[in-house]
Nucleic acid binder design. Structure first.
Lengths: 207, 207
DNA sequence: CGACCGCTTGACCAAGGTCAAGGAGTGTGG
DNA sequence: CCACACTCCTTGACCTTGGTCAAGCGGTCG
């Protein structure tokens, strides 16, 4: 929304509702009639699908500032996945109908939607490539490097959420994440709780 | 482009160039400076990435009517993947710069881009979900059902491309696709060359 | 006829999912 | 203050899935 002009911004804020959910609340389910798209303000949201045996697979983890269900803006009447609060969260929601109407009137809004969809499409394709090309330790290394402050030789990261959530985000079972972390120990990665110490950033890049 | 008004359509056609490529030609490579986005007219294009050992993984297979590299419209100066002609193809290409400019002027074009990006984002997220939830035979069954004409009890499909391309599209090695097909024989799927005979559509849905 | 290409099949192996058991940390009640 | 429970994570054992390598098969083309 940072890119919107004053009037467009005002009109978006006008149709926006802020809501809280508690950990594990379901915001919506796959195939339900879609009314809103969402923007996370605080906390994390899990988007996931079920197969017919009931196993869950995460599709995306959304953090503060990220939107979801925006792909329904163009077309589509039903949600495509389940959305669950991973913790206590605050989200803003926008009625799809109204945003569609606004996008036709306000040029800024259409442009902002294009930027948003593009960025998502890019990260989503990136995710497919990573799933298909990388092993578990490589995915974890990749995630750590993406979240390293800079090209300093060493770094320390605090995970913003539970490890089980990270596992889902990377398309792994929690056990596999655990094993990936312990295999990264030899590359100088030390895990204690949510704190991850990286002694040698360049060694991590080799993986 | 079907949704564009006359003037918008004319302006798009104006900046469009039609090109042919031969099988295995590379249209562009990952990280190259991005100049165009593309629309396939005839044939199929493979979008893929490499890991550092040089293994390839397909991200998407684009057929007639589909576009690629549109995610660079909003932002981004470099291609994110490699694009290769899977056979002799004809594509239309559009200068990103010019389309960006047009999208700001012509409302239709911005709307069409939104629809296009939305649709891609949906299918791409769908792809992640399928990769993470389904086994090889399930993916193949899913593909066949998606390409069945209707809810007739039986059907016959002709693959529009080589099996090795389908394998890549489904995130499998060619050998795994072969095995998946042979495991579907017991569900009444008969493969001869590119022709696939499905005796019992509902049995396939159970898988 | 031989070469080549795409596909299939078999054998083997590695990655990671699943199940079960065992910590470690935190909060609760006695 | 300690015992207990609970949650989350880790570890080990096992097994399934699918990747890889190599050989063989069948069709097509020169």
């Amino acid at each position: 929304m940072a890119s919107l002009g004053a009037s467009a911004l005002a009109r978006m804020l006008e149709i926006c509702t802020v809501t809280n959910y508690e950990a594990r609340d379901i915001l919506f389910r796959e195939a339900e009639a879609a009314e809103y798209f969402y923007c996370v303000l605080t906390g994390y949201v899990r988007l996931y699908r079920l197969n017919k045996e009931g196993r869950e697979a995460d599709i995306r983890i959304c953090g503060p500032g990220e939107t979801f269900a925006e792909c329904l803006l163009a077309l589509g009447d039903n949600y495509l996945y389940n959305a669950q609060a991973a913790e206590n969260i605050t989200v803003a929601r926008f009625e799809l109908q109204k945003v569609r109407a606004l996008a036709e009137q306000e040029r800024d809004i259409a442009q902002a939607i294009i930027r948003n969809l593009s960025a998502h499409l890019r990260t989503t394709m990136e995710c497919i490539a990573n799933d298909r090309l990388q092993t578990a330790p490589q995915r974890v290394a990749h995630y750590l490097l993406d979240n390293c402050p800079q090209d300093s030789a060493s770094a320390s990261i605090r995970l913003p959420f539970q490890k089980s959530l990270l596992a889902g985000k990377l398309g792994l079972a929690p056990e596999a994440l655990s094993r990936a972390f312990s295999s990264l120990r030899r590359a100088g990665v030390i895990v204690r709780g949510r704190i991850i110490q990286i002694n040698d950033v360049s060694a991590l890049k080799q993986i």
